[in-house]
Design a protein around this nucleic acid. Structure first.
Length: 527
RNA sequence: GAUUCCUUAGCUCAGUUGGUUAGAGCAUCUCACUUUUAAUGAGAGGGUCCUGGGUUCGAGCCCCAGAGGGAUCACCA
């Protein structure tokens, strides 16, 4: 039995290189300021709750003023956040206070915060020992400056937390031009806490992501489905065609895999007698990384008994329309992606794969055998190799010539059986299965089928997959005897779907890279 | 995995044909300033030029290898 490596050799426990490096001048200054604050008898990391009453943005949006520029609809306000800019002019100063909602200007005058003889609170603490990035709390009143900027006149201020490292200082002028932006993607992704502090505009992507998931969840709840959790650590990695992450359970001394899909477990729950289940699930696939692939990604899957893929198309439309409304501007179902405006209002166009290929290439693949498909590929100048079977050839034609044209939400239906080992055979079309994918902006957003519930057919499909594995296909599905046993106990007809959350968020927020919609995208370890 | 580009101060970036002690703005430090707003004015400090080799009298710059990142392509969702 293999021994686990020593914990200190694990990359994530290795100290960052910067800990060994000499501290920069600015870091030394901040540590000295920290010491001075303690010397004044002030705790730079206080424990007590700070009673915030207002957010910056609420004041900026709602404040109304009298003739003396004092706010009429705000009394005493208490805010907390980071100091992001300071402009000291002798005995008075302006600063930018940034909280979770945005940034508001505060006005600090020496004799207001230090009314007695001792001016240390202003001269030392505020002017000298306060650094950009420090957390403070302020109490004061809302007013408008000579130049018209809504500000808070500070009467009391409280130190709430020291920043020992300098934040990048991003400045924006009155024309909206940004200077010294913290823009290096590597630094942004590795230090998302810095990124979202100095580039708060990116927070909106994650707020939309959160709203989208909340909306989908409430839709599925309203549909009567039950949210469930299924294993992430699995003894057999089933439910999709992908290479898994392998790990090992020490006590059981067995290999385990991080799930590449949760489909087979959700179907077991349909067997168990739940009429509808859903799961927002992290999936893990040990494959390439690029701007549309992260090793872990999120999908929502749901399975509903006594339904078929036609019902699922209707439901998918309704779900997406509802979800996009919750994220879009003013409840709109439309989003602008590059030069395209995409409308998620249903119904969406429904097109069989064969009809789609006919429409965009003029080639008829209905009833075409492998040799005829190869001839079509040659006419269309599509590169193929000998290992490709019928299903793969059709998939190539679709991927090369059709997919990219499908900008508005479009259901592509009726896939070749070879590509779909978990899907029920089509009720009337030989060689096809009852499957659809939803294409939006030229990319797949959802994948759904009438679920295969015939255990004998399912076993044959697994056996076909094993043959692929023997030929060297390392993405083929392994046999799952327990899943087959479950089906043998009987599963009702069921419709199931998986919707990729990350790509949907990318679409709805106009992001070209999946890294922009993940808080902590996977990166190589820092050197 | 392939191709290609990038890596210089805390941040954003210059850096000529290979040539003295590597520069700028912001940030930092000192001083002045009670309604400023990319605050301003005066002065100062701050560098593993990604790493390791090599060529050369001399390398941030040229060559080789490596690391990390971006973009494009292939596979996957």
């Amino acid at each position: 039995m293999q021994l686990a490596p020593l914990p200190t050799s694990l990359p994530y426990l290795r100290p960052l290189k910067t800990q060994y490096m000499e501290r920069s001048e600015q870091e030394l200054v901040r540590r000295e300021n920290l010491r001075r604050i303690r010397e004044m008898g002030i705790e730079p990391f206080p424990a007590a709750t700070f009673p915030v009453t207002h957010l910056a943005t609420d004041i900026l949006e709602q404040a109304e003023f009298d003739d003396e520029n004092k706010a009429t609809n705000f009394g005493e306000v208490t805010l907390a956040g980071r100091v992001m800019a300071v402009r000291v002019m002798g005995k008075a100063a302006f600063a930018g206070l940034q909280d979770s909602s945005g940034r508001i200007q505060i006005y600090v005058s020496r004799d207001d915060i230090a009314p007695g003889e001792d001016k240390a609170l202003y001269n030392d603490l505020f002017k000298k020992y306060l650094d950009l990035g420090d957390f403070i709390g302020i109490k004061g009143f809302v007013f408008r400056t000579r130049t018209g900027e809504v500000s808070v006149h500070v009467q009391e201020f409280t130190f709430l937390g020291k920043a020992l490292r300098p934040l990048p200082v991003v400045k924006t002028d009155e024309d909206g031009n940004t200077y010294d932006a913290f823009s290096d993607p590597e630094a942004r992704y590795r230090m998302r806490y810095v990124d979202l502090t100095v580039n708060p505009q990116y927070k909106e992507i994650f707020r939309k992501r959160s709203r989208l998931i909340t909306a989908m969840r409430s839709f599925l709840d309203d549909l009567g489905l039950m949210e469930v959790e299924t294993p992430i650590l699995q003894p057999i990695h089933g439910g999709a065609a992908a290479r898994p992450f392998a790990t090992h359970h020490n006590t059981l001394d067995v290999p385990m895999y991080l799930r590449i899909a949760n489909e087979l477990y959700l179907k077991r729950l349909i067997v168990a007698g739940f009429d509808g289940v859903y799961e927002f699930a992290k999936m893990f696939r040990n494959e390439g990384m690029d701007r549309t692939h992260n090793p872990e990604f999120t999908a929502v899957e749901f399975y509903v008994a006594y339904k078929d893929y036609n019902w699922m198309m209707d439901t998918c439309e309704a779900l997406l329309e509802h979800a996009v409304k919750s994220v879009g501007e003013n409840g709109s179902t439309r989003v602008t992606v590059g030069d395209n405006e995409i409308d998620f209002k249903g119904p969406y166009r429904r097109l069989t794969m064969a009809d789609a290929i006919m429409e965009y290439t003029g080639e008829d693949i209905n009833g075409a055998d492998e040799a005829e498909l190869r001839a079509i590929c040659q006419r269309l100048h599509i590169h193929v190799d000998k290992t490709m079977g019928r299903g793969k050839l059709i998939d190539e034609i679709f991927g090369e010539k059709v997919e990219g044209h499908l900008i508005q939400p479009t259901f592509i239906t009726d896939y070749p059986v070879e590509m779909s080992p978990l899907t029920k055979k089509h009720r009337s079309k030989e060689g096809l299965v009852e499957r659809f994918e939803l294409m939006v902006n030229g990319k797949e957003i959802a994948n759904a089928y009438s679920e295969l519930n015939d255990p004998i057919d399912q076993r044959e499909r697994f056996e076909e997959q094993l043959k692929l594995a023997d030929r060297g296909d390392d993405e083929s599905m392994p046999m799952d005897e327990d899943f087959l046993r479950a089906l043998e106990y009987g599963m009702p007809p069921t419709a199931g779907i998986g919707i990729g959350i990350d790509r949907l968020v990318m679409l709805l927020t106009g992001q070209k890279s999946i890294q922009e919609v993940l808080f902590f995208p996977q990166m190589k370890p820092e050197a």
